[in-house]
Design a protein around this nucleic acid. Structure first.
Lengths: 185, 185
DNA sequence: GAAAAAAGTTGAAGTCATTCAAGTTTGCAG
DNA sequence: CTGCAAACTTGAATGACTTCAACTTTTTTC
């Protein structure tokens, strides 16, 4: 993780990692199938933490659909760069798309699924409290919200100089737009 | 394009392409910066066609928000595999994320932007006809619809055995769910 | 405690994208 | 037509991931 954060993914050679771990190149390959697996393993650590923090919000969301959704989303975003660089996110995303059949690709997509489910859980909780209209399918709608926050996050890591406040503003505008139409009838 | 469609992207060597073009490896690199650029160039051809076909639908959408949105989206999906394999899509997507600064990465993302804008245009047209409530921001809402159709398409190309009808059904459920709340008040 | 099996380690070799210095062809001005 | 510049072509060299056969160490069995 230290080496991936310090320099570009491409510039980190397996030989460097092997040296840091005081083993040979072959031994690295005994524990990780590919270079990408090593990166995904570190990214997964971070996402697990993010999911854990999200559980607290879903268990006791603030009142108001817009406020509650944004609290969860901002929490995701704020945690995202704690240990990972934008480049690490980009590389992990690319790997999960390019090599979907590999264990690490599947692992990354499973984390995505769990994040989407967490958003759906929040929508369902809000609906139970009467803050979201009852005729909306909470699971499908939660997924759509996740697609949006996920896409905006992808644009954020792809544009190297976009800031976290700019990302928050963009998602804020879209959630506000939706909030207008999902209130109870 | 022939070689990329026939076998895995990885298994197509620059030397193979050079041989087919009756030039040397170095000459290939005189016309394309990287192997990925060659792929993106072929994918871009396809997306331009898809955009062109979409313009006709936006110019004269069928009545009903749900029907109109689905007609545009299904048109995208049905065209997507005409010349490109799922693996080509995956590789192009991965490249555009991994190497966002390169000309080909930017080119791919620009195509994405234009597709999103086309969906927004359709929403605006429906709004002008009174089929979508006026207090919705058409541009932002159109983008959110695009995020969903784009994410579902990514899942489609990532899961090798998901069929086109299954993809259509998935997006259909999500658009139907939205259609319930975006009608005029 | 000895033998056998399993697990772990190694680094040289293979493969392929990419680079580059040298050579070749084309276009153009006088 | 001549000479020069620009554009194009070439394929061997480079660098990095990945594989693999040989070797060591650890664990299990009897």
């Amino acid at each position: 993780m230290t080496q991936f954060r310090a320099g570009a993914y491409r510039s980190v050679r397996i030989e460097d990692l092997a040296e840091a771990a005081q083993v040979s190149v072959g031994t690295v390959y005994n524990y990780y199938r590919t270079k990408g697996d090593i990166l995904i393993a570190t990214v997964a650590l971070e996402v697990e933490e993010i999911l854990e923090a999200g559980r607290a919000i879903v268990a006791d969301p603030p009142s108001g659909a817009e406020t509650a959704l944004l609290q969860l989303i901002f929490q995701y975003y704020d945690h995202s760069l704690e240990y990972l660089s934008k480049e690490m996110w980009r590389t992990a995303m690319a790997l999960s798309i390019e090599a979907p059949g590999t264990p690490s690709g599947q692992r990354y997509r499973d984390l995505d699924r769990r994040l989407a489910a967490q958003v759906s859980d929040l929508v369902a909780a809000l609906q139970a409290r009467g803050e979201v209209r009852a005729d909306l399918d909470a699971a499908l709608f939660g997924e759509m919200v996740f697609h949006t926050l996920d896409t905006l996050f992808r644009e954020f890591v792809v544009v190297e100089d976009m800031t976290l406040p700019a990302l928050r503003a963009r998602v804020g505008a879209r959630i506000a737009n939706l909030a207008r139409v999902i209130g109870p009838v």
